[in-house]
Every structure is written in C-alpha cells, then in structure tokens.
Write a protein that binds this DNA or RNA. Structure first.
Length: 468
RNA sequence: GUGGGUAUAGCUCAGCUGGUAGAGCGCCGCCUCGUGGUGGCGGAUGUCGCGGGUUCAAGUCCCGUUACUCACCCCA
C-alpha cells in the first residue's frame, strides 16, 4: 500500500539544477570565510530544551524530539521542557554559545568560526520563511573581552563574502545599540528598553502612532518622542550621521561611544572593494533581540524587500557565560534559504545544468561499451566529469539524451566516426572536432555546473544599473 | 494560532444550468535503418485530494476532512 506522497509545507526541497546554485553559494561563502581565517564547525542538530529556551527567544516554535520507543521512566508529555528534553535548534547562535562553553578549554580566543547549517522553526511558512532553512553564520568570540575592531572585521568579511555571490544588490544597514541607548539616556527617556522596542516598529506603524507609543509605553514626553523619531529618520551612506546626531543637541558618553563605533563600521565596510553592496548607517535599525549591546546590522536584498532582512546580526557582550567567564561575541548571519529559494522560484538564478557531467561518451553498440568506458576513464583522469551513454541507441537519440541532461559535449570514439578518430561535439553549436581523450578539456565555464541568470528580471537588471 | 483561496495528465490549466474527462507544453514512436534541435503525422498517461450525502446520474451540488497556498503575527 503506497503512502500518499505530497509536499510538506515549509520543508523545501530543491531539484538537482537548483541544488547546483545552493551548493555553489555555500562553497563560495565557505571560501570567503576561510580566506579570512575563519574555521568551520558543525554543531549537532539538537540541544537540550532549557538551552534553547534560555536566551530570551522563548517565542520560537521549537520542534521537540520524541522517540517512538520510549525508555523506562520517560513521561509522555508535559515536563519534557523542564527535564532535559531535546529540541531542534532554531538558529546557529544558541548552539554556538553552548559549544563555546562546552569546549572553551580546547579553543583559542578570539575564536573565529563560521557555520552553515539548517535550522528549524515551527512557524507558519511563507515565501522566504521556512520550517527548515539553511543559514550561514560567521562570528568572532573572545574570552572576557573582545576588542571593537572585530566588529568592523566580521562585518567586512560578510560584505566581501556576499559581494562574491551572484545575488541582486544588497544593502547593509548598520546601527549601534550604544548610540540609541546613549541618546535616549542623554535625552532622559525613562524606559530605554521599551523605547527601543517601540522604535523597532517604525516600518509597520506610522510615525505619529510610534510617537504615541513612546509616550505611553516608554514614558517619554512629547518632545522626547519627537527627538527619538528625529534620530530614527537619519539614514546616510557615509559618516555624516555623526553631525546630524550632534545637531539634535543630546550629549552622553555612551552616545559618543556609539557614534564612534558606528562611524568606524560604516567606514570600514565602505572601504571594501568596489561592489554592488550598499553600506548605510540607518539609525532606526534596532533589532528586537535584547542581547545585542553594540553594533547591529540588517541586510536587505534589492527587489526582495518583501522578504524583510535576508541577514542580520551584531554585537553581544554576553554571548555565553559560565558564571565566572563571559564570552563576548560579534557576528552576522545570512539566510541562505531565505534569499536563494525565492530567487530560484523567480528564475533569477538557476544552475547551468542538473548534472556534473561535461561530456556524454557515446556508445556504438553494447559490444564496444568497454571502449567508451575507457574514453571516460581518460577524461576523468585529468578531471573532466563525464558519463557513458546509458544505451547504444541511435546517435541522434544519444545526443538528445545529452541535451536533456544539459551535458554540453558528446564524445564519439573511433568506432563511431567516419575516419576512425576520436571526436568531440559541442551540441550547442554543432561543431565537431578531433580530440585526444587523454588531454582534451572543455572550456573552463563548461567544466562544472555553474550559476546562471536565465531571466532578465528587475532584480538582475538592477545589478547592471547600480554598477558604477 | 486567526481569516481567505485552491485541489482534474509529468507541468500549466480548461471543464457552463449535474449526463461515465479535455487543451497546450513535455514525453514516446514514425517520416529520416547510426549525428539531435525546425516541420509533419501518430501514440501513451488520470482512483478529477480523501470520506460521506443528495440524485436515475456528481469532476460539477451539499457536509466533513486533509494537504497546499496567500494574508495577519514573527523572524534567517
């Protein structure tokens, strides 16, 4: 009795041609991170529930693990949360914090690592929001202290890593928690935390409504609310925000520190290579998560603003703590699934072919299959991915087989050609030439499947326009 | 979790006021007896999501259910 097969909402699966894109992107990210000396780790898929729920983000819909065969003493429901039940991690930061504590004795600090793994959240799926998704995190964590220059460094690494990807133009929007907190403190806003949460709603609520909430929730005066909004509307692509903030007339030591840090981050990231990536100071960026203590960033993708951020992160002075030692960290995360799956669905990105083979070696008749296998071995010996035709069908059919699989070349051995030579045919152009199986190699761009942009969507044409 | 929409061939979908299922694309074959793509001709494929009800008769109407999907909420 066959079980009914149907898609599972929120658990996307890619076809081979799309998977080419994801693999290419992941490989490129890993390469970029490694260029900067970040080491890779992979943490287990599960964490104890109390670890998962410890870090403020209690609203996450954690998937709990349950075995079909329960062990003696295990209860059916209810106290799993309290008694060390297991759950799938919902991000890579919480497992990383746990990993740092667990292995602190074996790590060198500052510890620089990247992690590209799936995470799971039981929330309602939507475009760009899945129940299983892959993200790429890069972080630096120190013991007791982590100098500020690492904030600049890690953000720059992500700018460079994303700049190397074939994505629509991205925008990194930075802010600094010290700047906001210092400003609010200097201004005399009674409940700074509440004020930050309210300001974070600026893109959903109109300014007047936010001003009202600042008064009602954060205890601000109307004048203070106005000043908070004035701060939040500052958004510039250089360090001129410093003067604009000063012009608001608030003075505070923490504010000064935040201004200096944000300026350093904006300057440091802008100094990276020429690119399609926009760097901005956007003083309304707050990030709801309350463990951020300094630099904060959100990343947006041109043409895909509806996805909200495709990445984000920042500084957390207490990423992890074992009671005696505190481990501050700074890092940023990029949503691989969130950004790639919509781009694949829209045809903005695609794989050049669904199979690795660059060559299909034709088979004249089943009696000579070994000859074809030998040709394939010669090609593989110098790194040309290839496969042998599945049947000794008519050559026209074998060529069609190659075409359907996106394989650009068909190889004909001596037994198949009029003058008994080895020949290779580019089935796109139809050109067929003599070739030596021990040395022939396809053009570099045909050697491996690669990422292509099949449609001229708004997102990709923006790429051309914004290139200076 | 709340509200809306949808469910028919591998894919995209049509199928009116009920009368035992269709198109395009794709696929296979032939025209062309070992070098594809264009063209022509021919062919195969469906428990019409699932369960129940009304009816002489249900893809179509009613009820239920499941899945998918969109919006709200929240985030990568």
């Amino acid at each position: 009795m066959a079980t009914k097969i149907s898609p599972l909402s929120g658990f996307p699966e890619l076809l081979p041609e799309q998977r080419v894109v994801e693999r290419e992107v992941v490989a490129s990210l890993a390469h970029s991170f490694e260029l900067h000396g970040f080491t890779n780790i992979e943490t287990r898929a599960v964490e104890p529930v109390d670890v998962l729920l410890g870090k403020g983000e209690t609203s996450k819909e954690v998937y709990l693990l349950e075995r079909l065969q329960r062990e003696v003493g295990e209860t059916e429901h209810g106290d799993r949360t309290a008694t060390g039940g297991l759950g799938l991690h919902f991000d890579l930061t919480v497992p990383f914090a746990r990993y740092v504590l667990e292995h602190a004795g074996h790590l060198q600090f500052p510890f620089r690592r990247f992690q590209i793994q799936p995470a799971w959240r039981g929330e309602r799926p939507q475009e760009g929001r899945y129940r299983q998704f892959t993200q790429a995190d890069v972080d630096i964590v120190g013991r007791d202290a982590l100098p500020f220059h690492h904030d600049v460094e890690v953000m720059r690494v992500m700018v460079e890593a994303l700049d190397a990807l074939p994505l629509p133009p991205l925008s990194f929007q930075f802010n600094n928690r010290k700047l906001i907190q210092g400003f609010y403190a200097g201004l005399g806003v009674p409940d700074i935390e509440a004020a930050i949460r309210v300001i974070d709603k600026l893109d959903k609520l109109p300014a007047e409504k936010v001003a009202e909430l600042l008064v009602s929730d954060a205890g601000a005066t109307a004048e203070q609310a106005e000043q908070c909004l004035a701060l939040a509307t500052i958004r510039v692509a250089d360090t001129s925000f410093v003067e604009r903030v000063r012009a608001l007339g608030v003075t505070d030591a923490l504010l000064d520190e935040g201004l200096a840090e944000l300026a350093a981050v904006v300057e440091g990231c802008s100094a990276a290579l020429p690119s399609d990536i926009t760097i901005e100071a956007n003083l309304r960026i707050a990030r709801g998560l309350d463990y951020y203590t300094g630099t904060v960033v959100e990343i947006f993708m041109s043409g895909y603003e509806r996805l909200k951020s495709v990445g984000g992160g920042g500084r957390y002075d207490a990423l992890a703590s074992d009671g005696r030692t505190t481990y501050p960290g700074v890092g940023v995360s990029f949503g691989v699934s969130r950004s790639l799956i919509p781009l694949l669905a829209d045809g903005v990105l695609a794989g050049s072919r669904p199979v690795p083979s660059a060559v299909l070696v034709a088979v004249s008749d089943e009696g000579s299959r070994a000859d074809s296998e030998a040709v394939a071995s010669s090609l593989r010996a110098h790194g040309v991915p290839c496969e042998v035709a599945p049947t000794a069908a008519k050559f026209g059919k074998q060529i069609k087989t190659a075409e359907r699989r996106g394989i650009p070349f068909v190889w004909f051995g001596p037994g198949s050609t009029a003058d008994a030579t080895h020949q290779v045919k580019d089935i796109r152009s139809g050109e067929q030439v003599d070739a030596d199986p021990t040395t022939w190699t396809p053009p570099h761009e045909d050697l491996r499947p690669r990422v292509v942009s099949p449609t001229n969507s708004p997102a990709t044409s923006n790429t051309e326009e914004t290139t200076k």
